[in-house]
Structure formats: C-alpha cells, structure tokens
C-alpha cells in the first residue's frame, strides 16, 4: 500500500477523470445507479492496483480500461460477442442527404436534438459504442483507444467506421420519421 500522502495525491489525480468515467459507465449501463456502482468499484480497484500505474502515462485511459473491463466482467460475463454491423453496408449520411436535395446538408444536423443523438449512440452494440465514446466524446487518439480496449489500432478504426455508419443511419431514420427530411423529393431543409 502506498504512503498516505502518495495515496491522497493519486486519488486526487484520479478524481479529475471522474466525469469521463461516469459518462462512459452511464452510456455502457444506461442506468445512473449501475454507473455509480461501476465507477466506484473501478476507483477502488485502481487504488488497490495503483502500483501498476506508471506515473506520467495516460491515467484517464488506464482508469477507463479498468472501468470497461469491470463492465464486461459484471454485465457481460466477459463475453465480448457483438452484434455485427456489417449488414448495413456503406451508409454515408452526407451523400444520402445530398442525393435527396437537402442543402446545405449540415442544416439537417442542426435540427436533430441532442437527446436523439444520445439515443442513437445508446443503440450501438457495446463494442462499437465504447469506441465512439472514447474517440468522439472523450477525444482519445486511436492509439490510446486501442490501448484502453486492448485491441489493435486497425480494430479501433474498423469498429469506429461501422459505428459511425450505424449512427448516421439512426439519425437519418429519425430525421425522416420526424419530418426533418423527406426522402426522394426534398429540395431544401424545412425551416422551423
């Protein structure tokens, strides 16, 4: 066990990453209570194994790795089979909107509520969701995401690519259902 002062310093530094861990746990579990349990256990485990953390390396990535490994152990029994997203094929929202005459395309994004984006992220299979959380939400590099997840960079890139396509398809479906986009004939984005 570390000296009390060193332990306090370690805990203080670790707590600066709490929001990242909590957000990640919330998006993985979809439940605030489970997210808090998961994060608390992750911090306790981090404290217990702080000797394995190398000062000066990426503590945020190290903590996230502990949390997501606990998630898979507790909620998934370490089984990391995932729903394949390959069936979707290539779906590029920008091209889809352009084909349908929505110009400028980015106006469609401005009309999508944040809650719908979160919902689309939540619908991703966990192995794909966690890559989006790390790279798009938390700004991890591909290498840090790969280290955190324990997979090659190529796997991060392929999961991210498929996850983004699925996400774009979900947002497109929402835009159609809510009337933001009218397939096959829209000439401009309706003004609100």
């Amino acid at each position: 066990m570390a000296e009390p002062a060193a332990q306090t310093a370690f805990a203080e530094e670790a707590l600066t990453h709490l929001d990242t861990l909590y957000r990640g746990a919330l998006r993985l579990t979809h439940d605030p209570d489970q997210a808090q349990d998961l994060v608390q256990e992750a911090y306790l485990r981090a404290l217990r194994y702080q000797h394995s953390y190398q000062a000066g390396t990426n503590m945020r990535a190290w903590l996230f790795a502990i949390m997501r490994n606990l998630f898979w152990d507790r909620f998934k029994g370490s089984r990391k089979e995932d729903v394949s997203l390959d069936d979707l094929g290539e779906f590029v929202l920008f091209e889809k909107l352009r084909d349908e005459g929505a110009r400028p395309e980015a106006d469609v994004l401005d009309k999508i509520a944040a809650s719908e984006v979160v919902s689309a992220v939540d619908k991703l299979p966990p192995l794909h969701r966690e890559v989006v959380l790390l790279v798009d939400v938390e700004g991890f590099s591909y290498k840090d995401a790969a280290d955190t997840l324990g997979v090659p960079i190529g796997t991060v890139m392929s999961r991210l690519h498929r996850a983004r396509q699925q996400l774009q398809k979900s947002l497109y479906d929402y835009a159609v259902e809510s009337g933001i986009v009218r397939p096959g004939g829209m000439k401009q984005v309706p003004q609100t």
Binding site: L15, V39, Q40, V137
Partner: peptide, 27 residues
C-alpha cells in the same frame, strides 16, 4: 460538424456532486 454534435450531445453528463464527494471520502 457531426463529430462535434456527438461530443456535445454526450458530454453534458457529469458525475453528481454527492457521488463525487462520496468517492473522495472512500478514497
């Protein structure tokens, strides 16, 4: 734009204050 939208939509969740304090005490 889409990448920023995903980030800003998801990063507004922060750990509750009470939870942060509880963790601080535990640690």
């Amino acid at each position: 734009h889409l990448k920023r939208l995903v980030k800003h939509s998801c990063d507004c969740d922060t750990a509750p204050k009470a939870f942060r304090e509880k963790l601080r005490q535990i640690l």
